[in-house]
Design a protein around this nucleic acid. Structure first.
Lengths: 203, 203
DNA sequence: GCAGTTATGGACTGGGCAGTCCAGAACGAA
DNA sequence: TTCGTTCTGGACTGCCCAGTCCATAACTGC
């Protein structure tokens, strides 16, 4: 069966993901990726195709993992309200971790992806959709378990929380953990307000 | 006095800013900048120094202009509450405009700036600070004119609105204007809630 | 119209980039 | 041990990039 591989593709992908996450797609060079993964050029090209293919694989994998983690976390608490609190606490907590790249790969790339790059846009859009859906589901659960007032519209608030999450990840990128904390405190309070939909908002 | 310049530096900077805004620093080439500004290579290097210097000038100029526009807008309405509404309506409106680059240059660069790039970080941090200050001031004005409940803490809510703004600009980048609208509606409602600070939030 | 000064166009350079390719290494099978 | 297969290291390529440089153009003052 020929010479066996000297690396595990999955591990290499994880390392490559960290590089893209830290530096962004454009600023990342193949040398960066070779160093981080420890692969030889041939192995990397043989396994992943090209820098761009590798990036798309990294981005997709990152999004899938994050979505799954998020769904699990959101279902792991007694009430939906607690689950949402826990989720945002985790986001803040992650921003504090030393070894972890700052911000969120998907959010970062959303900010720098080219207008005509439909492939990256599709992955990012999918990520946006699935996070919004996860937020909407947990809010609905909150309606059922009584932890979130019924007047809180699930779609609207899901979009709100989603946008807020992206803002938080940008703040994480700038290392503004204090700002993140204050933001989360205010945002969570909005979930407990009953009259959020009653007033004729500005649209 | 020698041969006169055939261009206006200010205009060239405006054009260059649009390119960086659209493509991001890394993805922008000198050819892009030469084409957009119409300058010759010598003139561009003579006037702005280097690609990086030009970028820093573009970013600073963008931030200054945006901050000034924001302050003027926030002071142009009868009440602070109306001013904040108008500001976010403008952000959504801008996201709709066809000819305008998507999102916000400062927000985009915040997402892709390198960890060791202290110069860009400083400009972005300054922008973050001045926007937060502007939000805090308008909230204080709202306390005075009665349009914002006194329980709404100005610093906390300023940070909240600032983070939200960054999230909105990311959504603009992904062309999700619907999401922006829903987000703004929810966020503005939070400003009218009196008990936002009374509850022991998650921190 | 001449001298001095400044701006311009474009050829040029060196470096770094993504990606290719092949000789040989490292196995499994018989 | 030998053969077939698969993987690996690294030399190599060609391209595009930011930045330099200089001959010449375009002007002002005298």
């Amino acid at each position: 069966m020929g010479r066996p591989k000297e690396f595990i593709a999955e591990d290499a992908l994880t390392q490559a993901t960290r590089v893209f996450w830290t530096k962004g797609y454009e600023a990342t060079t193949m040398v960066d990726l070779l160093t981080a993964t420890g692969l030889s050029k041939s192995s990397l090209y043989e396994t992943f195709g090209s820098k761009r293919d590798l990036f798309l694989a990294a981005l997709s994998g990152y999004c899938d993992e994050r979505t799954q983690m998020m769904r699990e976390l959101l279902q792991s608490r007694a009430t939906a309200r607690e689950a949402i609190t826990a989720f945002f606490a985790l986001i803040v907590e992650q921003a504090r971790q030393e070894g972890r790249p700052f911000g969120c790969l998907s959010c970062n790339e959303a900010a720098q992806m080219e207008a005509h790059d439909t492939e990256v846009q599709r992955v990012v859009a999918r990520d946006l959709d699935s996070m919004e859906a996860a937020f909407a589901e947990v809010i609905d659960r909150g309606h059922a378990d009584g932890s979130i007032p019924p007047q809180v519209d699930s779609r609207r608030h899901a979009r709100f929380l989603n946008t807020l999450h992206h803002g938080l990840q940008l703040m994480a990128r700038t290392r503004s953990v204090d700002r993140m904390e204050d933001t989360v405190a205010v945002a969570l309070a909005a979930l407990d307000q009953a009259d959020g939909l009653a007033r004729p908002a500005s649209q």
